[in-house]
Each structure stands twice: as structure tokens, then as C-alpha cells.
Design a protein around this nucleic acid. Structure first.
Lengths: 238, 238
DNA sequence: TTCATTTTAATGTATAGACAAAATGCTGAA
DNA sequence: TTCAGCATTTTGTCTATACATTAAAATGAA
């Protein structure tokens, strides 16, 4: 296969960096040196090195040169599966029990989620079941100005998350993942002991600049796990 | 602020795409049209549109044109920060206490991590402290055939994770995130009660096809959180 | 019609040159 | 010595042009 020259140059250095031949802090040749080495124009070299800089593999500083970046915050791709679909995939039956449904407005929202006072909200609280056993609890606020159809939706059986995913694809989201002990109310809903360890996922989603929903989900330890992967290929077993 | 022209063009369209003004499938003007509109050379326009393509916001097809891409997979980018750096960032002092250090081989590795019997391994177990208080426990196996310098490294103070990150950038990784209660040994190391809720991160990393390390980390609930983000811009506050 | 072929409009790659911007490192003055 | 200012190196941006590549669209033959 005949790769473009700028791509070949880029890969040459990517390989050397990832293999460790060029360690963090190592200086790459100047563009002048590279255009002599590859016998090409400066723009071609520049394109290759700029791509590496965009990818975060190198840092470029005027006058100083191009240096292999120190690997710091590696971002991994985390799967955010639909709870119901995931349970069904394991061959278990899925159910969602709605415990609380209330209409309110932005002024009464949780401090974690700041929305305008005038925004109409829907508050939902419920429990997810797998084969009749509760395994997750969730508390959610939805901006019904953004999703008016939600007021008519029925959540006996399928979860609000599934409904939202199908009706309002989000464009932006923030998630915080922590561990926590179940509170009294949560422990009762999940029929576990007070303080039982749970995985807590807190998520805010937007469509464009419009806040869509804020949700706090508690998963019983052992009943759920998040997976993340970084790298070129698919998941491995190892 | 005087942004470069190619960056201004890029942002113009990024804004229009993210706001929904240009929906998925919408066609952007041709490079010819844009160089007329912005009164610049084609390379400048090309740089802007190529950047959008690299970012996944648009698809470009020869002869057909440039089109707004359909929203991508439901995977979020999870930050995997360096523990020590993160503690230091909060203005706290950081320390790592090594509790166990043992050299063994692949045959004695944990079942979760399958490596060849002949591979020499280093087993490490220790506790992370912030301002003198333990907040995380970790148990790690390292393939020292891949990182022989690790046998000489000193982990009194800085953690093996930090050392590895600086010396062996990985190219591939798998992570599993769960909640769990602290075991007797873990509870003792972290000076908490048996069964105290913890966030458990289990990670395997490779460089190329070579397994580098397997680590299981337990973070005390409340002392640590993972964040993930999906979407174009930076993190929001909302 | 239907299929194969040619045309053509769009992006992809590359060149050579010019000037801008920035940070390092040198030089000279206090 | 130390600090300020200057020169130089290196990357950043942009232009104008050329040819390559690809796939849509038009064309023509069966």
C-alpha cells in the first residue's frame, strides 16, 4: 500500500515513540532536518508533526523544537450501556419499578444540577430489577421543556434512561463515578443492609447547550461493572 | 484575540454543527465556495475542514463533498489520571508505602492475568496516602521482561504507577470498574472497617502485544472519583 | 431499459516560498 | 553578578499552484 508521505513520516515517529525508542522528553529532528532526510517540502513534514501534536504524542515549542510528550492523562473509552439491554443480554428478565414521579421546576432542583428557575422538571426515582432481584436504584431529573413527550411516557417496565436514549440522543455528557454506602432509603429499596457498598454513577447530559437530564444511579457491588478500553484493536481477553 | 484564519473557519462550522444549525447529513460548502467566502487560499480552508474530519465532526468524500457526521458511539472518554499528580493538584502531600515486594514468574500470576509461565514478574502491594491519610490500596504485577529497569526502581515515596507511566507508555489497556467492600487485609491497610465501600479499578495494560502490568486498586469511597466526558468541548460546570 | 464507459467535480497530496510569532540563548550594560 | 534587550532559531500560518485520486454524474452502446 502506498501511503502518503506525510502519513509515512507520522507513522515513523509514532512507532518510535510508542515502542519507547524515543522516550518522553526526547527531541525530534527539526523540520529542516526532516525535509532533508525525506527529501520533501517543509509543509509535508509540518503536516506529519502537527498531526502527532494534535494526537498528544508530541509537544511543539517555537525555537525549542518538537519533543515526545510525557504521557499523563490517558483517556480511555468507557462503555455506557443501556441497563435494560445489558440485563437482557445476560439472559435475565428486566423490570423497572417507578417509586416516585413528581413535576417541579428548576428552582427545586438538586444543587448538583443548576438549571434556570423557570425550567419545568420531572423528577423520577425507581429501582432496576434483574430476574426479580433489585440491583440498581436511580434518581433522575429531566428537563421537560427539552423533552415534553416525557410527561406522557410510561415507565412501568422500561426505564427512563432507555426511553431518553431512544428519544433524545445527547451530544454531550459528564459522568462521575464513585463508590458509596447505601443510605437508609436506598438500602430499603434495594433490600440490602445499610451502608452496603455500591457503585455510584452520576451523569449530566446536554443536547447542544440545553441541559437534558441529571441522574444518580447506585449499583449493588457485584451486580454491575463498567468497562473501559484504550487502544487500537478490540477488547482482549488476556 | 486574533485567531488564525483556519482556526476561525473551523470554529465557525464547529459552532454551527454543535448548535444543530447544521444537522447530521447536512452538506458543507465546497472548498472553492469557502475560499471565495473567506477570501483565502484553498489550503487554509482545507486545513480547517480536515481538522473537523479528524475530530469526527464531518465526513469528507471526494467528488461528493463534506457532510456533518452522524453522532458517534455511546462511549465516553474516561480520564485515567496519575494518582500522585492528582493528590498534589489538590494541594495535599502524597506518599506511597510499599508493603510487599516479591519476584516471581508467570506461573504464579493471578488467574485474572494470564501470562506465559517463563515470564519474570514483580509483585507489588502498597498503600497511597494523601496528607498522611491512607486512601487507596493497590496490588500489582509487572512483567519485568518488558521493563527490566523496574527491578532497580525505588518505590518509597512515589508509586509504581507513576514510575511506569513515565517509563513505559502503554498503547493498549482494559479496565473494569466496580464497587466492593474492603477485605480484612485491605481494611487493615486502609485503617477502615471491614466491608467499607471502595471503588475498585482493575486494569491490564499492554505495549504493543506485550503485557506490561496488571493492577487492582481500591479507593476509599469519598476519597476518589473517576470522571468521564463525552462530547466536543471541554468539561462543563453546570 | 440497463450496463459499461467517460467525464467531471470534489477532495487529497505535495511544492516552494514568504512572513509572523515566540522562546531560547547571547550580549552588553549597570 | 544580574538583568534587560537583542539576535537567531524553530515552529506557525498562509499563498498560489500543480497534479493525483475518487466517486458521482453524464453519456453511450447493447
Amino acid at each position: 500500500m502506498n501511503l502518503p508521505l506525510h502519513e509515512r513520516i507520522r507513522q515513523d515517529f509514532e512507532t518510535r515513540i510508542l515502542s519507547g525508542a524515543l522516550g518522553p522528553g526526547a527531541r525530534l529532528p527539526t523540520e529542516q532536518a526532516l525535509m532533508a532526510h525525506y527529501d520533501c517540502a517543509r509543509m509535508t513534514v509540518n503536516k506529519a508533526l502537527s498531526a502527532l501534536a494534535t494526537a498528544g504524542l508530541v509537544d511543539r515549542r517555537k525555537k525549542a523544537g518538537t519533543f515526545v510528550a510525557r504521557p499523563r492523562v490517558h483517556a480511555m473509552a468507557m462503555d455506557i450501556p443501556d441497563i435494560g439491554a445489558q440485563v437482557a443480554e445476560r439472559g435475565q428478565s428486566y423490570r423497572f419499578d417507578l417509586g416516585l414521579r413528581r413535576e417541579l421546576d428548576g428552582g427545586q432542583a438538586r444543587p448538583e444540577w443548576r438549571v434556570d428557575r423557570t425550567v419545568p422538571l420531572l423528577e423520577l426515582e425507581g429501582v432496576h430489577f434483574a430476574d426479580g432481584t433489585p440491583f440498581a436504584w436511580e434518581h433522575r431529573f429531566v428537563n421537560v421543556a427539552a423533552v415534553p413527550e416525557m410527561l406522557l411516557a410510561d415507565f412501568t417496565g422500561s426505564s427512563p434512561g432507555t426511553w431518553l436514549l431512544e428519544h433524545v440522543p445527547w451530544t454531550e455528557a459528564d459522568a462521575h463515578i464513585t463508590a458509596t454506602g447505601a443510605s437508609a432509603a436506598q438500602a430499603r429499596a434495594l433490600t440490602v443492609a445499610l451502608g452496603a457498598p455500591c457503585l455510584c454513577v452520576e451523569r449530566k447530559t446536554w443536547r447542544g447547550s440545553e441541559a437534558i437530564t441529571y441522574v444518580r444511579q447506585l449499583f449493588l457491588a457485584g451486580a454491575y461493572e463498567l468497562t473501559a478500553h484504550f487502544g487500537p484493536g478490540a477488547r482482549r481477553d488476556g
